[in-house]
Design a binder for these strands. Structure first.
Lengths: 257, 257
DNA sequence: GAAGCATACGTCCGCTTGAACAAAATGCAA
DNA sequence: TTGCATTTTGTTCAAGCGGACGTATGCTTC
């Protein structure tokens, strides 16, 4: 029923943090710090290697992701789990029964999918992960867009995806992102992904941006749109107050979960 | 890692058989027959209720599915597991690296998806279940069709699905079915599903029909096509020999897994 | 040679099962 | 209808089992 132990998830998550912070971890150090056996740390590192996040070296492991590169989905999934769940809860409450919803890709959107699976709505999710979460709901009418599937992310991109989105109108679209620049640009790591987000926004009556507070000020490659053009922004306590104040001044409805 | 115990699966499967055969099961009888505690049978029946297969009554449970109605996906998945795996293996061996493959929906196709996930191919699966299995493969280029998603089955149907399929050409399509009539009609339970299968066949250079032998002679609502028009049929030892002989005479390549 | 690593095995923990018991539902009689 | 006997059900707890972790030992690499 379960993939992993709770503590195992916690250890792996902290190893990833250390890798991203210092570029490397040592087996002995981590073992002492986590209060676990060295053998256990080695087994954890094997997982990271299998997921392509780290390369094993004698005595530890080094980061394989270059600066700014996106973590694999399976890793981000373990990050800020609680914040995502709270944000998802708030987003779900914004959506009425009977609405047609467009749902972006990303781990936050999977959380949202889980939260709205209990409602009676029509949803087009942009990722297979979100689709799986929605499929559990009995009242959900699930519509899939076509498209090429980005590995790992399992997000639809490409012309087929854009055409599928253009063929429908959404009452609400919920968008996630990799970061929001200081200038207020909503950013994505992938150009194809950014195009899909823009298509979603173009087909939407109401647009919701959902992101945990740590993403404010974080950089990424592709510009999606100005954050101030969204109707609603849902974030958490980690978001900088001055940014939110400016958004409110621009007429954006801001929620903190 | 695992959803359930082996014996638990076996028990539930036998309960479903009994339900379909007699329309009802008794807790006490089943407990004696299976050599399990009554309490365990009750817990098993809870699962069937949760999946909508049975309704609980005092002392047992009664069948909720009308005659001929298709079992829910989650139940069929537990059926003929071994045969499906062997059939999937043979189908996978028919497919060369680099091919573009169209993959139908159904539990047998999920098995096929698992078998070809290790290859380097481009695949468009018609169900989310198969998509999940394929996503695990690193060498697979995954293309999703759009469409409405049949609940439980998670199979794409409708105009969007037909359009997505029409937009591509497959080297090989692998088709599953609910049954093959005595007259040689390939049958499906759902009209939308049958239309999708026909669209797949229309976009294919080579067509493969994969079905376990128990499906020969089994009825269903919708006609897809004559079985003799397929290029290849993959089945198992349970298939009646005379039917296969006639197929061979019609020029169909027949494999028994 | 020393440090790190992989394998083997013992231990611990959580899940499933079965048994015992209390609660609820049904049948029967008045 | 009420009261009682009986069957079924849900709950709780102990036993069994499998997976994860830690330790020990031999092997590899520097």
């Amino acid at each position: 029923m379960y993939d992993q132990d709770m503590e195992a998830v916690e250890r792996v998550s902290r190893l990833v943090d250390a890798l991203r912070r210092d570029g490397r971890v040592e087996v002995a150090t981590a073992a002492v710090e986590f209060g676990a056996a060295e053998m256990t740390i080695r087994r954890d590192l094997d997982q990271l290697v299998a997921r392509g996040v780290a390369r094993r070296v004698r005595g530890g492991a080094i980061n394989l992701l270059m600066r700014g590169e996106e973590l694999p989905f399976a890793m981000r999934e373990l990050d800020a789990v609680d914040a995502k769940r709270r944000i998802a809860r708030v987003v779900a409450d914004l959506i009425d029964d009977g609405e047609a919803v467009g749902l972006d890709s990303g781990t936050t959107m999977v959380a949202v999918a889980g939260a709205i699976a209990a409602k009676r709505v029509t949803v087009m999710p942009l990722s297979l992960h979100a689709a799986s979460a929605l499929a559990a709901g009995t009242g959900v009418q699930l519509i899939m867009p076509g498209g090429a599937c980005r590995p790992g992310e399992l997000a639809m991109v490409g012309p087929l995806a854009l055409a599928s989105i253009a063929a429908v109108r959404f009452d609400t679209v919920v968008i996630g992102c990799c970061g929001v620049s200081a200038e207020g640009h909503v950013l994505a790591h992938d150009l194809g992904d950014a195009a899909v987000k823009q298509a979603l926004l173009a087909s939407a009556n109401r647009s919701v941006l959902a992101l945990d507070g740590a993403k404010f000020g974080r950089g990424a490659l592709a510009v999606v749109q100005e954050v101030s053009t969204f109707d609603v922004v849902v974030t958490d306590d980690a978001a900088p107050e001055n940014v939110l104040a400016r958004l409110r001044a621009d007429g954006v409805e801001v929620h903190r979960a």
